[in-house]
Nucleic acid binder design. Structure first.
Lengths: 150, 150
DNA sequence: TCTTGACTTGGACTGAGTCCAATATAGGAT
DNA sequence: ATCCTATATTGGACTCAGTCCAAGTCAAGA
């Protein structure tokens, strides 16, 4: 049983076939799937799993802090299983590829007290946009450099 | 005629009634409207304006760099007319209020060369999340502290 | 093995955003 | 001032991600 499943178990989750399968999909490579991509991969392991269960489970994993919700294009939400290491994202504006990146400084320190307006600031997300080597080489229009790793 | 309209004119834009009205809506306070909010306000000035025109025009303004597209909740896109001053955003996770903030350091400098993976990095967005004073006071659940300024 | 509350399901629904063919018009040409 | 046409607008249909719900299923504690 994966670490993730063990932790979920410890939190009182009922370990259903659906949740196991979703955990397995997320446990693989550190990619950033959309809910529908998770569903597509889950269906290969458990053909009868529903979209609703995937949405429910992903939402719960986000609430528990086991998975991070990421939105790099203003359209689709993606799910990042790399929730236990502080990191940010680097996105290719050509093909949409997403890479996890680690920063040298805590971005919170760049927001001076005078710019906080009394907010209790709790979290920061930083997203870098640029062109990946393949898209630079191909000088391609959006989405034309083949399927990226997101 | 506003500066914005003058610049658009200089770029060869046809100045239609619809575009004037949208520019007027955006010219007001520095808020972050959704496309439908822009439409609602535009309708007050020009009742027959269509949603399609609002979407078209906002998209073109974003392409021209006159307006910035912002997505702070992973759901709706918002439009920020404050495109000519570098800034980032501070978002209340209680009520969704958005404030423009200026940082002390260029966030690009926090991404070391070794974390760029050959990307030609061109842009960064930083979004801070926390609770605004009103929501802290009200200790409210999301959306329960009245209508915020977004 | 039984029981029950938590979980899953499919399908209807919502809401943001896109697309398109028909119509209207800004603004340069005459 | 009028004409002409490329450009812009329109409404309505459509897409797609995500939500909701009532009915059925099942994990796991008793």
């Amino acid at each position: 049983m994966s670490d993730l499943l063990r932790r979920l178990r410890a939190r009182g989750w009922r370990l259903t076939a659906q949740r196991r399968v979703i955990a397995e999909v997320l446990d693989g490579e550190h990619v950033h799937y959309t809910a529908d991509e998770v569903h597509a991969r889950a269906v290969e392991l458990l053909p009868e799993i529903s979209r609703a269960s995937v949405y429910n489970t992903l939402g719960e994993l986000v609430t528990l802090g086991e998975v991070i919700e990421v939105n790099t294009d203003g359209r689709v939400r993606r799910y990042d299983p790399n929730a236990h290491e502080a990191h940010q994202h680097l996105v290719c504006s050509g093909c949409g590829a997403i890479r996890d990146v680690r920063l040298t400084d805590d971005p919170l320190s760049a927001l001076p007290e005078g710019e906080r307006f009394g907010f209790h600031v709790a979290q920061v997300t930083v997203t870098y946009y640029g062109r990946c080597p393949r898209c630079v080489a191909a000088n391609s229009a959006p989405g034309q450099a083949g399927s990226p790793v997101v």
